[in-house]
Simulated assay, not measured.
Amino acid sequence: MTAAMERDELPGNVVSLQDQGPSEVSERLLASAARLSRNAMTEIDWSLPMEPEKYGCSPEWSSLYGTDYWNEMTQEQRISLTRHEFASIMCIGIWFEMILQEMVIRDQYLGDYHDPEFQFALVEVADECRHSIMFAKASEKMVGRSYRPSRRIGRLGKIFKRTAKNEVAYAGILVAEEVLDVFQRGCMRDDRVLPFIRTVNEIHVLEESRHMKFAREEVRESVEGISWARRQFSALYVAMGAYFIVSSLIQPQAYADAGLDVDRARREAAGNEHFHSMIRSSCAHLMEFLDDVGLLTKPAMRYYRKVHML
């Protein structure tokens, strides 16, 4: 089942709201946040022991699922791998959520404080702070460590957060949130996954549905009437950001911590058509939106194809 199909099944879903512009949509999103926001710090009992037979994510979402290496692993090795992979994904999520928060605050600096658009932007920042703490505690509990992007990607992230504005900032936010959303929707209803991780996924998916709706409206408003040259530049910049985010999700150290041969794991993951197909099918809704707003140009498509989003 694709991510786009699953969105329609979520309780409290806001994705299907008719497009009414940022202020009108933000007002609805504020009301949704007031009714449906959740807090992992009180909802999850972080002291409970983990069930040893439970995965960190659905095995089908492992980067090595279906490969020769996967077939050689014991059940314990597969469980360990999914836990370290998903811990890496959550930690990279923290990294980008920190970039996101800075871009949103900068965009709303000296905004119209009475406007629902400004107020929901602050709700989003507050949500992201809670999500980052939730991911940090989840990765600590599951594998006992954090993962970070490489120094090079970390430097590029600093450049992106300082230079991305308007449609680049919000389309970049949308791409990163949609990619993480893809993984979490695939795992949040799977009884084979650790219960507290399923709850983490449910909380994040529900609240990110509001953030993605907000980002889409901001992108639509920003691209209206822009020049051909700016559209081309923005599309390429967003795609490059997506490339670096997606290629960083599973850090090589996660394979090492799971007791695998890192070189072999990376080589087999790079050629794993099953995993690539899962990513492509789940990003179809995102690609349709980018195409609709004119941000899926031929140069941009090359970067999306490199990380199997298209």
Rank of each mutant, 00 (worst) to 15 (best):
E268D: 14
I245Y: 14
A254T: 07
D263I: 09
Q253P: 00
Y303Q: 06
R280I: 01
G294N: 05
R266Q: 12
I279P: 02
C283T: 15
A269K: 11
R302M: 02
A300I: 05
F289L: 02
L260R: 03
A300F: 04
M287N: 06
M301L: 13
P252I: 11
I245N: 05
I250H: 02
S277C: 03
R266T: 03
D292M: 09
L296H: 13
C283K: 05
D292W: 13
Y304M: 06
Y303G: 00
C283E: 08
A300D: 05
V293H: 06
K298P: 07
A258C: 03
S281P: 00
M287P: 03
A265C: 08
M301K: 15
V293Q: 07
D261G: 03
D261Y: 04
A258Y: 04
K298Y: 01
H274C: 01
R302W: 04
P299A: 09
E273I: 13
R302S: 10
F289W: 07
E268W: 14
I279A: 11
Q253R: 15
A270V: 11
A265S: 14
Y304F: 15
V246P: 03
D291N: 14
G294R: 08
D263E: 15
R267P: 00
A300S: 12
N272P: 01
E288W: 10
R280T: 10
L290T: 06
R264D: 01
R267D: 09
P252R: 13
G259L: 01
S247F: 03
G259N: 03
F289E: 01
D292I: 01
S248P: 04
A258Q: 01
F275T: 11
R264F: 02
H276T: 02
H276W: 12
M287V: 04
I279Q: 13
A300V: 05
R264H: 05
D261F: 04
S248W: 12
H274D: 06
